[in-house]
Structures are given as structure tokens and as C-alpha cells.
Simulated scan of single mutants.
Amino acid sequence: MSIKVNLDVIMAKRKMTLTELSEKVGITMANLSILKTGKAKAIRFSTLESICQNLDCQPGDILVYDPDDPPSS
């Protein structure tokens, strides 16, 4: 997939666990884990906003476009 999710990197920089972020954002650990591992096919803007707010970052810190990685079909 051409979009890379760097959530794990940002969480490590902020020293925040999956459990902590899950509680603060209000989504299940399972759904947050899917996003963290890059297996998510979509994310709601409200979820992205809450993640950015709680990690004090920008959406571009979490989602990165990689033109060299072909999109999955």
C-alpha cells in the first residue's frame, strides 16, 4: 500500500502505550492495533483528529505517502 502508517513511531516518541492511547481516543485496542500495524483500509477524520490531539502531532506525522510502494489491490 502506498500510504504508510507511522503511528507506532509517534507513540514511541511520546512514550505512550496502545492501552493509554486507546483509552484517550475512545476506540478499541483491536481497532487501534489494526491502524498501528498498517492493516487498516480507512480512518475516520474524527479518529485521526483525536489521535493527533492526544499525541500532539499532525496527520502528516502519522500518514506518509510512499510513491515507490505499489498500491495493494
Results as ranks from 00 to 15, higher is better:
residue 4 K to S: 14
residue 54 N to W: 10
residue 3 I to K: 06
residue 62 I to H: 09
residue 18 L to G: 08
residue 30 A to G: 12
residue 11 M to T: 05
residue 49 E to K: 04
residue 18 L to W: 07
residue 35 L to T: 00
residue 23 E to L: 14
residue 6 N to S: 15
residue 35 L to R: 00
residue 40 A to W: 00
residue 63 L to G: 02
residue 54 N to P: 09
residue 60 G to D: 11
residue 57 C to Y: 06
residue 3 I to C: 03
residue 4 K to C: 12
residue 20 E to R: 12
residue 29 M to Y: 08
residue 56 D to E: 15
residue 25 V to N: 01
residue 60 G to L: 01
residue 31 N to P: 05
residue 7 L to M: 07
residue 70 P to T: 07
residue 20 E to H: 13
residue 38 G to Y: 02
residue 10 I to W: 03
residue 43 I to L: 01
residue 5 V to G: 01
residue 58 Q to P: 07
residue 58 Q to E: 11
residue 32 L to T: 00
residue 64 V to R: 13
residue 16 M to K: 14
residue 64 V to A: 14
residue 41 K to S: 05
residue 26 G to T: 08
residue 39 K to Y: 06
residue 11 M to Q: 08
residue 21 L to W: 08
residue 21 L to Q: 07
residue 30 A to T: 11
residue 65 Y to K: 14
residue 36 K to V: 00
residue 23 E to Y: 13
residue 37 T to C: 11
residue 43 I to M: 02
residue 24 K to P: 10
residue 17 T to Y: 08
residue 59 P to V: 06
residue 12 A to P: 10
residue 35 L to V: 05
residue 50 S to M: 14
residue 28 T to D: 13
residue 22 S to W: 06
residue 43 I to R: 01
residue 67 P to G: 02
residue 42 A to E: 02
residue 67 P to Q: 03
residue 67 P to N: 08
residue 24 K to W: 12
residue 36 K to F: 02
residue 68 D to T: 14
residue 23 E to G: 13
residue 37 T to K: 13
residue 71 P to I: 01
residue 5 V to C: 09
residue 52 C to F: 05
residue 59 P to D: 07
residue 17 T to R: 10
residue 27 I to C: 08
residue 71 P to E: 05
residue 54 N to T: 09
residue 22 S to F: 09
residue 65 Y to T: 11
residue 13 K to I: 12
residue 2 S to Q: 14
residue 14 R to Y: 10
residue 56 D to M: 11
residue 14 R to A: 15
residue 31 N to G: 03
residue 48 L to W: 01
residue 5 V to N: 04
residue 34 I to K: 01
residue 17 T to F: 06
residue 13 K to S: 15
residue 30 A to W: 09
residue 25 V to G: 03
residue 55 L to D: 04
residue 33 S to R: 08
residue 32 L to H: 00
residue 27 I to M: 09
residue 67 P to H: 07
residue 4 K to F: 10
residue 71 P to Q: 03
residue 5 V to H: 05
residue 49 E to Y: 07
residue 32 L to I: 00
residue 66 D to Y: 03
residue 49 E to G: 05
residue 27 I to V: 11
residue 26 G to M: 08
residue 28 T to M: 09
residue 15 K to R: 15
residue 64 V to F: 13
residue 55 L to P: 08
residue 13 K to Q: 15
residue 29 M to F: 09
residue 69 D to W: 12
residue 51 I to F: 00
residue 66 D to Q: 05
residue 22 S to Q: 07
residue 50 S to H: 13
residue 66 D to M: 05
residue 9 V to F: 14
residue 67 P to M: 04
residue 37 T to L: 12
residue 20 E to C: 11
residue 42 A to Y: 04
residue 56 D to S: 11
residue 45 F to W: 14
residue 10 I to D: 03
residue 25 V to T: 05
residue 44 R to Q: 06
residue 5 V to T: 10
residue 60 G to V: 01
residue 33 S to H: 04
residue 3 I to R: 03
residue 54 N to F: 12
residue 5 V to M: 03
residue 10 I to M: 12
residue 10 I to S: 02
residue 5 V to Q: 03
residue 69 D to I: 10
residue 24 K to C: 13
residue 23 E to S: 15
